Amino acid sequence: MASITGFGGIFLRANDPEALYRWYEQHLGLTKSEGSFAFPAPTQRAQIVFAFFRQEDAYFPPAQKAMINLQVDNLDGVLDRLIQEDVTVDPKRESYDFGKFGWFTDPEGNRVELWQPATTD
């Protein structure tokens, strides 16, 4: 039987896509190739989560229809660097058995979640 084999991507609307690509390149070190950011699957550190939230759920702004969750290898390092670059970073950081979380807001007002998965030593 044919089946889903994995997560294919994230698609967001933007007022100025090219400017937003440049911002993500500058502040997150992502590299645009052939019209998008691509991540090689073998570098994935943990499972990918696909979840639904109620319209009124406050986990991310209700007016925002989707939220990006990016995996990082050093949450504090990335967030501290973003603060130094004058990016709007939520001061709240959370830790759970499955990893650490933090958030920032991009120039178009999108709340983005960063996740440092727990190590599996």
Rank of each mutant, 00 (worst) to 15 (best):
E85Q: 15
T5D: 11
R22M: 08
R13I: 06
K65S: 02
G29H: 08
G99N: 11
T120W: 15
Y96C: 04
D16F: 01
P61H: 00
F98G: 13
N69V: 08
V112M: 03
G99D: 08
D73F: 06
R22W: 04
L20S: 04
D76E: 11
R111M: 12
R93D: 07
A66R: 03
L79A: 12
S3W: 00
E113M: 12
Y59Q: 05
I48L: 14
W23Q: 01
I83G: 14
M1S: 10
K32F: 04
S95N: 11
K100Q: 14
E18A: 08
D73A: 08
K100F: 11
M1W: 00
G9E: 04
D121M: 12
D121W: 12
I4K: 02
D57C: 10
L30S: 05
L30A: 06
A66M: 03
E56M: 01
G8A: 15
P40K: 00
A46P: 10
A38N: 00
G8F: 04
N69G: 09
F11R: 14
A46N: 13
K32I: 07
N74T: 01
Y59M: 06
Q116K: 06
P91L: 14
E113I: 02
V112S: 06
I68H: 02
A51M: 13
F98K: 12
D80H: 09
T88F: 12
G109Y: 04
T31F: 11
D97M: 12
A41Y: 04
N69R: 07
H27E: 08
F98C: 13
E18R: 01
I4P: 03
V49T: 08
L30M: 13
D80S: 14
A63D: 09
E94G: 05
F101C: 11
G8V: 05
G6S: 10
Q116Y: 10
Y24N: 01
Q116W: 09
D80Q: 13
Q64C: 02
Q64I: 00
Y59V: 06
F53N: 10
P62K: 00
F39M: 00
A14Y: 09
G8Y: 05
L75V: 03
L114C: 02
N74R: 03
K100T: 08
T31E: 15
D73K: 07
M67E: 09
Y21M: 10
G99F: 11
L28M: 10
F52P: 07
E34P: 03
G77S: 06
E34H: 14
Q71H: 06
Q26D: 15
